[in-house]
Amino acid sequence: MRRLGQLETVVMQRLWDWGRSVSVREVVEDLHKERRIAYTTVMTVLDNLHRKGLVHREKHGRAYQYHAVMSREAHTAGLLEDVLDQSPDRKATLLNFVGQLSAEEQVQLRAALAKFDEPDDIDTEE
């Protein structure tokens, strides 16, 4: 099961890199450059990805052609949405180091940091 999960990652990476529709055979051939893998395994992996809504498929002749539903960037943006959520009702899924500061806060905080840094500089200038 765990191995299948890892394979899903590998296959998704390929699909994102290609950015077009590919057949199972193409994926298998590309994977063969790195590892021995059965055609049916790849088909299962693509089927799983389809069931999870990560890839889209269309019938071309007798075989399916697969392509990623969303780009890698769109997925990343979705992933980081959880992190950027600053509403008071946000879930406690994760802990963000720091939220986005407003322009005003940035100016004030930079001034506070500068004030702390400066005394030495002034001494050396005088």
């Binding site: 600053q86 509403s87 939220g99 806060e105 905080l109 940091l113």
Partner: peptide, 23 residues
Amino acid sequence: RALVTLGSGTPEPGLSAGDVATF
């Protein structure tokens, strides 16, 4: 310094909700 750097990392106009605790 790292807090301020990351807090002002991405100028996104949509994200104006400041983080009070950072201050």
